[in-house]
């Protein structure tokens, strides 16, 4: 039975991993099974999904690799001095 039923702590970690598509089919099944009977974890999962949607909608700005390399070069040159 313990193969299928997990604690709320484990379920919340699985919920987080699920946001990064990191769950195996077995883990997905366990997670769904737990959420099926646990209101608290279901609510946390919903909040976590909303949070992920917010993060994905923000359009983070990042430096490209050539930009980072250019800064690294400047920094390296300065460190040699």
């Amino acid at each position: 039975m313990s193969k299928f039923f997990i604690s709320c702590d484990e379920a919340s970690i699985l919920s987080t991993r699920d946001q990064y598509n990191d769950l195996s089919p077995k883990e997905k099944f366990r997670h769904k099974l737990h959420n099926g009977h646990c209101i608290g974890c279901r609510s946390f999962n919903k909040k976590s999904r909303l949070f992920s949607r917010t993060l994905n909608g923000l359009g983070w700005v990042k430096l490209s690799n050539p930009q980072k390399n250019s800064i690294k070069e400047k920094l390296k040159a300065a460190m040699k001095k």
Partner: peptide
């Protein structure tokens, strides 16, 4: 660098200037 770049771009609104400021900061 990405963290500083995000911090800067929300304040100066110019990616090239933001990159320069990050570089100058280092």
């Amino acid at each position: 660098s990405d963290y500083l770049f995000n911090f800067t771009i929300s304040r100066v609104n110019d990616p090239i200037m933001a990159q320069d400021l990050v570089s100058e900061t280092f």
